[in-house]
């Protein structure tokens, strides 16, 4: 392990002379950087997706677990009485923190996406909604339903369970998909850098044989290649990450009404994670090139 650390140090401190022994190869260099940049760009999005769906799963979980809705459908004349009865009943129910009847403005806001503004809600037989906030212990849903049936016949209790489970599950799957994508992107980066390094090693067979003839150790030769590819991957990934972050930043900001898609992005400490992409790409490149160089060198005399 300490040998690896020494090598990593060598990669960054560098040896100008050792760098020069490998001829500059403009085109492959640009391809390697381009591949690293593309992969970093994709990683930023996969990361944003993972974190957004993670946040969403948590949000849905939190909000929906501790809230439920009571819907009262009654003839216009009895609506006020039944609402008052239901509120009284809820106030005496253990496990209910607060219960609040939605005002007609709030109800109109809920319906607006479907019916548009200026809906004459008072003229329509719209059920009255009561928002219930639970305490951490929660209430006994079955017991509450029985009591409601007796005292408020027009009330229907919805504790959100049937919505919450599949949504949370979907968000969880989406997050896992994001992480799997990141792993695959990392593996692909390693593959591409290995191929590029192999091509560079093959193209420089004469350089390697001259270096061996004058007494260069394998580590010295490998280092020249490893350093080059690691720095290319680092630079490429830095550019790709920056581009990805800019793209995420100019996505429409998260809105109440926009729902899930506009929430794709980073929040708070989340902005820290993409900054790990360039160093991780460099580490992947380091090990991929080192393995390729050692394999190639051990096959030569």
């Amino acid at each position: 392990m300490s040998k690896v650390v020494d090598h990593l140090k060598g990669v960054f401190s560098g040896d100008a002379q050792a760098d020069r022994v490998v001829p500059p190869s403009g085109f492959t260099a640009r391809l390697t950087s381009f591949a690293a940049a593309t992969m970093a760009f994709l990683t930023v999005f996969a990361l944003a997706l993972s974190m957004a769906s993670g946040r969403l799963a948590m949000k849905w979980g939190d909000e929906l677990t501790h809230s439920s809705t009571l819907r009262i459908s009654a003839p216009a004349g009895q609506m006020a009485d039944q609402t008052a009865a239901a509120l009284r009943l809820l106030e005496t129910t253990p496990g209910v923190a607060t219960a609040r009847a939605l005002t007609s403005d709030e109800q109109r806001a809920l319906l607006e996406p479907w019916f548009g503004p200026d809906l004459p809600i008072d003229a329509l037989p719209v059920p009255q909604l009561i928002e219930i906030q639970e305490t951490d212990e929660g209430y006994d849903a079955a017991g509450l339903r029985l009591r409601l049936q007796a005292e408020v016949p027009g009330a229907v209790l919805d504790d959100h369970t049937r919505w919450r489970k599949p949504l949370q599950q979907a968000a969880g799957r989406l997050r896992m998909l994001g992480w799997v994508s990141i792993l695959l992107i990392g593996a692909t980066t390693a593959t591409m850098i290995t191929l590029a390094a192999n091509a560079a090693l093959a193209a420089n067979a004469q350089v390697i044989s001259v270096l061996r003839l004058v007494g260069a150790r394998d580590d010295y030769i490998a280092q020249a290649f490893v350093r080059r590819f690691t720095l290319r991957a680092l630079a490429g990934a830095a550019i790709g990450t920056a581009a990805g972050l800019i793209a995420v930043m100019i996505l429409p900001a998260a809105q109440e009404k926009g729902g899930f898609l506009t929430g794709l992005g980073f929040q708070g400490m989340g902005w820290f994670w993409p900054l790990l992409i360039p160093p991780l790409a460099a580490i992947v490149a380091f090990f991929a090139t080192r393995a390729a160089a050692r394999r190639a060198l051990s096959e030569l005399t």
Partner: peptide
């Protein structure tokens, strides 16, 4: 392989077809 490298530092070799870093 490292022993070979160290040995070659003590042996100067001139090949018939001399190769360099071009």
């Amino acid at each position: 392989r490292d022993d070979h490298a160290l040995t070659r530092r003590r042996i100067g070799v001139v090949h018939q077809d001399c190769q360099f870093l071009d």
